[in-house]
Design a protein around this nucleic acid. Structure first.
Length: 678
RNA sequence: UGGCCUAUGGUGUAACUGGCAACACGUUGGUUUUUGGUACCAAAGAGUCUAGGUUCGAGCCCUAGUAGGCCAACCA
């Protein structure tokens, strides 16, 4: 009761309204209706989250219904994969159902429609029918078979069902209106002949119902109260309702279709057809390739169900087209993994470091905290010795003091170990650093700026790390009319790295998730064998140092395409704002402020006005009438200019006159004040 | 030569149904820190696509326009 009211999305509002208009809470029922013709992807997660989320919120049942009316594309493999993914996300469906369960009922209802003269058999080619259908801007015309007798329709339909005709020779259509402005209402097809094996009904049927005829009736059979789908089905709603009208018993629940905007992710494609192409063309290793936006891909990549659900919850539900930035997804997975992933050390790009004052042959097992975010995570031991690997990037012979990693003569802390000082380097003939020589001190209480991760060479285990980059180099790869999405494939989306890890990782099992300290989150891939442990990089840590370095680079060569960088560039291009811009901004708020503040702002504007030229001000005379605040700011500025000797002209006089005629008293007052300045 | 839907900071979603535009991500500073992570604090950034109208008062209602999306598969 006392809970803060969380804003409801528009679907929840519809349900609340229905509830207050007499629908009882136990009548609520939802469904998630995937077609088993591909794997689920992150976009589906939104639909899943909406319907199952509503189920959880209202304690209402949610059916998992496979929309399997097209035997040409559907397979049992997909049914199994979909069930696995929904369950993995943590949702529980009430019943597992199939549209194919309703084939007989649908057939019986179709006969009723024929008998009522509301459906007929058409026997033309699909080309001829397409022609008669018209276009979105032109009405259709009736076909020659539209007025077949009921007896003939019944006979033909029966024979279609019995397999007497070839595919494509006849179809059953609803008889609605060939001139209807909604093309879906121009005698839509209800049944086609398909002599294909169905994954559930085998060869029982030679005719299969179309989506529109099936979907609403299935919702009705299951007594779904709210049938939620994505926006592109909006035009189908009229037909959905028409079909329902033909069979509905008013004492039962009549399902309602409502539509929301589907989820789009930047740098990602979300079409099952195109994802299938990536799989078939071998661009990726399968539907569960960690670069795929599929649920199985994200799972293999190391994402958690919690993170994905949190993500879907955060993006919200509305009706406008949207493109979500991948950075939000990354934020959600980092947030979860930060709390739960044990920290370990691994070096991906090693350079040898020798501690010259550490005895040869000596080794120590030092205590390391597993996760400082989790008190119950405990500690482990990591081995330390004279020869270590650190990251190449963590050392520079010479660097400024913004670089607080290791440099010659500089000190740095080794995580969980000692403080070291770089004394010298050993290079090969090409001048590459092959060894860094350091001394260490056992006093670890001192403050040093940098902390590095490391592994002991002698104890390190070799592992394979797979690092992923985005699959596409374009923000919206399937949104180009002149280019195919395949043109934007990133050739370097997978990097295989031989790396060195601390020995505790020997015990790691498939699926285990870790934070490699200072690098990112990694999980153990399915391909791992007893000889070779393979890690996927789930996501990197936020890295403000890399960001800074990148910013410096892009200052010298400004061609970058990340949206974030674009923003940065924009900002650095406008370091100082012009006085006129500040005035404009101050003016916007003017009328909303209490009087004391208005006085303050007024003084500020008048001060700034001294730095404004007439040429800068003149365009603002055209400010829309309703933006009163801006107009007041312009009047104030103009006053200052006039006092400083700016002569009046026709444009100025018009502007003042218009201001004097305004309804807003503040504006009129200020205009009167400058009216008399000569 | 039509119908339907949508329009709020860089992105996404809010705004108690008409009462001085909020939250999250991102960005920028700062504090803490044996992860340049986390946490915490702060700042910048929109007067709500445009033009009219109704109203004491409009992001919300009305009208017209503009822009974007969807609709012509025997797919779902």
């Amino acid at each position: 009761m006392s809970e803060e009211r969380k804003p409801l999305n528009f679907i929840e509002q519809i349900i609340e309204e229905d509830l207050s208009n007499g629908v009882s809470k136990d009548e609520l029922r939802f469904r998630f209706p995937p077609e088993p013709n591909g794997y689920l992807h992150i976009g589906h997660t939104k639909a899943i989250g909406i319907s199952f989320g509503l189920g959880e919120k209202y304690n209402a049942p949610v059916n998992l219904r496979f929309d399997d009316t097209n035997p040409a594309k559907e397979e049992q493999e997909y049914v199994d994969a979909i069930k696995k993914d929904v369950a993995w996300l943590g949702y529980k469906w009430d019943k597992e159902l199939f549209s194919s369960d309703y084939f007989q009922q649908l057939y019986d209802w179709a006969i009723v429609l024929i008998k009522e003269g509301k459906a007929y058999i058409d026997s033309q080619s699909s080309e001829a029918m397409a022609e008669q259908k018209g276009t979105p801007t032109q009405p259709g015309v009736d076909g020659p078979f539209r007025n077949r007798s009921i007896a003939e329709n019944l006979d033909l339909f029966e024979r279609m069902k019995n397999g007497e005709f070839e595919e494509g020779s006849h179809i059953l259509r609803a008889k609605i209106d060939m001139q209807h402005p909604n093309m879906l209402m121009r005698d839509p097809i209800m049944y086609r002949i398909l002599k294909k094996h169905h994954h559930r009904t085998a060869n029982d049927w030679c005719i299969y119902p179309m989506y529109d005829w099936t979907h609403g009736e299935s919702d009705y059979i299951e007594q779904i109260s709210h049938s939620l789908c994505s926006l592109e089905f909006k035009p189908h709603r009229e037909l959905y309702d028409w079909f329902l009208d033909q069979v509905v018993d008013t004492s039962l629940i009549r399902p309602k279709q409502r539509e929301f905007a589907r989820l789009n992710l930047s740098y990602t494609i979300m079409s099952k057809r195109k994802l299938l192409q990536l799989v078939n063309d071998g661009v990726v290793s399968g539907w569960d390739d960690p670069r795929m936006p599929t649920i199985s891909g994200l799972r293999r990549r190391g994402y958690t169900p919690y993170a994905i659900r949190k993500f879907v919850e955060t993006v919200g539900v509305a009706k406008r087209d949207n493109v979500i930035d991948v950075s939000l997804l990354e934020f959600c997975i980092r947030e979860d993994l930060n709390k739960i992933a044990p920290r370990v050390m691994a070096v991906l790009d090693p350079v040898k470091l020798v501690i010259t004052n550490y005895p040869e042959g000596k080794e120590e097992w030092l205590e390391a905290e597993n996760n400082q975010e989790d008190d119950s995570a405990g500690f482990r031991k990591v081995p330390f010795s004279r020869e270590l690997y650190i990251e190449k990037d963590d050392f520079k012979e010479a660097a400024g003091n913004k670089f607080f990693r290791l440099k010659l003569g500089g000190e740095v802390r080794l995580k969980n170990a000692y403080i070291i000082k770089a004394e010298s380097v050993k290079k090969d003939v090409d001048g590459n650093i092959i060894e860094i020589h350091c001394t260490y001190s056992e006093d670890t209480s001192r403050k040093v700026k940098g902390t590095l991760h490391w592994v002991s060479i002698k104890h390190a285990i070799k592992v394979e790390v797979r690092e992923y980059d985005r699959l596409f180099m374009d923000e919206a790869p399937d949104n180009h009319q002149d280019k195919d999405f395949m043109d934007f494939i990133n050739p370097n989306s997978l990097k295989v790295i031989p790396a060195f890890a601390e020995p505790s990782l020997k015990e790691a099992k498939i699926g285990d998730r870790f934070q490699f300290q200072r690098l990112g989150y990694f999980n153990v891939d399915n391909d791992t064998t007893s000889e070779r442990i393979i890690f996927n990089k789930t996501v990197g840590l936020r890295d403000s140092w890399a960001k800074q370095t990148r910013a410096e680079h892009s200052r010298s060569k400004p061609t970058q395409n990340s949206s974030n960088q674009k923003q940065q560039n924009n900002k650095s291009q406008q370091p100082k704002r012009k006085a006129i811009d500040v005035i404009q901004q101050l003016g916007k708020k003017y009328t909303n402020l209490p009087e004391i503040k208005q006085q303050k702002i007024k003084a500020e504007i008048q001060e700034l006005a001294k730095n404004v030229t007439y040429e800068e001000l003149e365009p603002l005379f055209n400010t829309a009438a309703k933006k009163v605040g801006t107009r007041i700011a312009v009047v104030l500025t103009l006053g200052v200019l006039l006092e400083n000797g700016q002569g009046k002209n026709g444009i100025i006089n018009d502007f003042i006159t218009k201001a004097l005629e305004d309804k807003n008293e503040l504006l009129v007052t200020e205009a009167e004040r400058i009216q008399n300045i000569i």
